[in-house]
Design a protein around this nucleic acid. Structure first.
Lengths: 212, 212
DNA sequence: TCACATGAAATTGTATACAATCGTCAGTAT
DNA sequence: ATACTGACGATTGTATACAATTTCATGTGA
């Protein structure tokens, strides 16, 4: 009864590997050998393989047949792509709920923003918090596949990178701004805020002046 | 040298299972036992597990821990969701290439539409052709993650269902219409055509009058 | 020196074997 | 009759073992 919601080895390994990639312990391009991971975590290769395949889906690692698995190199283009997709999906969410974001969700977002205040140096924690914040928006639409698509897009890595590049405003400021627009209940205003939020993140998008 | 691009067992099994689900051989809610599949295809459980996990990502099957895997039941809401997402992603693609679809792509789309002419009864083939057609649009944006997201959305099943429900126009007619708009090079026109294309597919979308 | 063949080591791909968990169905007490 | 208990079978979760492929170093010949 104690192990009501215990987790499978695969899930544990997924989290471990993901963290090690996001914190930079596993560097871009570095090879990930199934056996190494397995002995490192004290498990067999089975769960490791399954975990790596899932992480591959998220775009954090790359498999080459009969050669192996390596940490995906995140280019400027990847950052651009992830921002593009996240923006599109979040805009869709807002449109679906007609800009009306429930009080409960707004509260969660406010708390999230407050937590960001003291995190500006801990990039990994910031990434997790960023995911939580934006997930609130995506959840509001109550479209399960939209949420699933958003989550499995492998946005982590790219967003983390963005944190480095964006020195003008703190994450706290950026999300506070977005949050305030969300409180307005005005679809158009929120949509613009989302676009601005992601445009800020990469000058590539700014340069090409994309109308998302 | 002959097996220059042979495929791994996992990939083969993925295709086999996918086909069996889409053709209705594996029915909604039906349990899929790893051992059964393994002996059926003459392979071991390893590749079967990996294949099923991938198909789970696509939303065609569902795993329950220590219980098993079953074919996902596709509801009206699923159809709605997939149409919503496909529309959003395809609209994004068109906007990214400013409505200018290359001649080569248009040619491929024309050929695809022609092939649809004689397929109206073969739902599986139709689904594959539908994917090919729409993939042309998504590829045009040259955003690899956009394409990846579109593909791993598990659109197959829902689209197949749509084929049943939509008696007003043949698939050939629907895609011919869309193709003709694509030839115009006018972003707004194409976007409207895409929305109409997917709105047609499910009255749910029509009822809610969603502005994608 | 360079191209190419060759073979061993390492790694992934696949198969088999064992362990843990869950569902079922008698059986029993209330 | 019903609710609970417990053991059995079936299925998934995990570990180990083997096969196939690739890589890399080494050696050989021109």
């Amino acid at each position: 009864m104690a192990k009501l919601n215990y987790r499978t080895l695969r899930q544990e390994v997924v989290d471990e590997i993901r963290q090690k990639i996001l914190t930079g312990e596993f560097k871009e391009g570095e090879r990930i050998k199934e056996n190494e991971i397995a002995t490192l975590f004290g498990v067999s290769r089975g769960p490791v393989r399954e975990a790596l395949r899932q992480i591959e889906q998220e775009g954090l690692v790359h498999y080459e047949r009969n050669v192996g698995c390596s940490v995906a190199a995140i280019t400027q283009k990847d950052v651009y792509e992830v921002c593009l997709l996240r923006a599109a999906l979040e805009v869709l969410s807002v449109k679906l709920c007609h800009g009306k974001i429930s009080k409960g969700t707004l509260d969660k977002m406010r708390e999230s923003v407050q937590r960001m205040k003291g995190m500006e140096t801990d990039l990994y924690a910031l990434t997790q918090e960023d995911k939580f914040f934006h997930n609130c928006l995506v959840e509001e639409a109550q479209v399960s596949r939209l949420k699933h698509t958003w989550w499995t897009m492998g946005s982590n890595h790219a967003v983390l990178l963005c944190a480095h590049q964006n020195g003008t405003k703190t994450h706290y400021d950026q999300h506070l701004e977005l949050l305030q627009c969300c409180e307005s209940g005005d679809t158009a205003k929120i949509v613009e805020a989302i676009k601005a939020h992601y445009n800020l993140k990469t000058d590539y998008v700014q340069r090409t002046q994309l109308q998302i």
